[in-house]
């Protein structure tokens, strides 16, 4: 495994396609520690695919993805698991394990690793649930939780292994304004703890509240990378349409849906 000294996650010239449809073409992205980023783009453009590629859940057709200099494309499942210890993800629907209690969900990775005693694992699970304000839900099952609570438990689970990077896949989708505010505050809390966040979302207020930099994908390519100010000042038509959809963009959207 080739190692280089640079910290962070890098995607270089990544191509990925499914069933003849190109999702990413010569895609580049860098996630530096401490710089919180949001990936933007219309639905179906491949934002979630980027997260799954970095996590090694999908393999790119070509190009390289490195985590702290280590190319995950050359890793076996065991090495990949070691690399994944640096990263956690909060899936869109929470992806909590139905057959386990909230406590078991949060403690899942620690139980899998089996390095710690039962009492220590329970203490850590309780601490992480405390961070998201759900200590009382320890013995409940996911089916007994609301959508917002599920997302918070998913955040607690992502925190259990103390990762450096936490990915969020549409974390505020389907939540009421209070739920959205809670998630924003939790993300800011994580950033204060030194975690680096990478989020994909359509929720612009949340993106602006928790991110330092923004990446915009259009037509399988990264067409913009920069700060909020740079994005707002951008004269790219695609970004302008994303912020202020017009009848023209609705027409384009309908055409794109037909093509896919």
């Amino acid at each position: 495994m080739a190692k280089s000294p640079e910290k962070g996650i890098r995607m270089e010239q990544v191509c990925y396609s499914v069933g003849g449809r190109t999702i990413l073409r010569d895609f580049n992205l860098t996630l530096e520690p401490g710089i919180n980023r949001t990936i933007l783009g219309v639905s179906g453009v491949g934002k979630t695919t980027i997260l799954k590629l970095i996590l090694g859940l999908l393999r790119p057709d070509s190009g390289s993805i490195t985590i702290d200099g280590a190319d995950i494309g050359r890793m076996g499942e065991r090495e990949l698991n070691r690399a994944r210890k640096h990263i956690s993800i909060v899936f869109q629907g929470g992806a909590l394990f139905d057959s386990m209690t909230v406590g078991e969900n949060v403690a899942y990775r620690l139980l899998e690793e089996g390095d710690l005693g039962e009492a220590e694992i329970e203490r850590i699970a309780m601490e992480k649930l405390g961070f998201v304000g759900l200590e009382q839900a320890m013995d409940l099952y996911p089916a007994e939780l609301s959508g917002g609570m599920k997302k918070r438990v998913a955040i607690a689970r992502a925190l259990a292994a103390d990762p450096e990077y936490i990915f969020f896949d549409e974390p505020t989708t389907g939540l009421d304004p209070i739920g959205v505010y809670n998630i924003q505050q939790l993300m800011l809390g994580l950033q204060r703890q030194g975690k680096t966040t990478l989020m994909v979302t359509h929720d612009m207020p949340t993106a602006f509240a928790v991110s330092d930099r923004f990446s915009f994908i259009h037509d399988a390519r990264l067409i913009f990378e920069g700060t909020r100010g740079e994005m707002e000042a951008s004269n790219l038509v695609e970004i302008a349409e994303f912020f202020s959809p017009s009848e023209v963009s609705l027409f384009k959207f309908a055409n794109r849906q037909e093509e896919t």
């Binding site: 859940l57 994944r84 956690s88 899936f91 629907g93 992806a95 909590l96 139905d98 899998e112």
Partner: peptide, 17 residues
């Protein structure tokens, strides 16, 4: 159902075979 609700992906991310 575990696949479509991303529970299987979540297990893989958590290091499970």
């Amino acid at each position: 159902t575990m696949v479509v609700t991303e529970q299987v992906d979540a297990m893989r991310v958590e290091g499970t075979d």
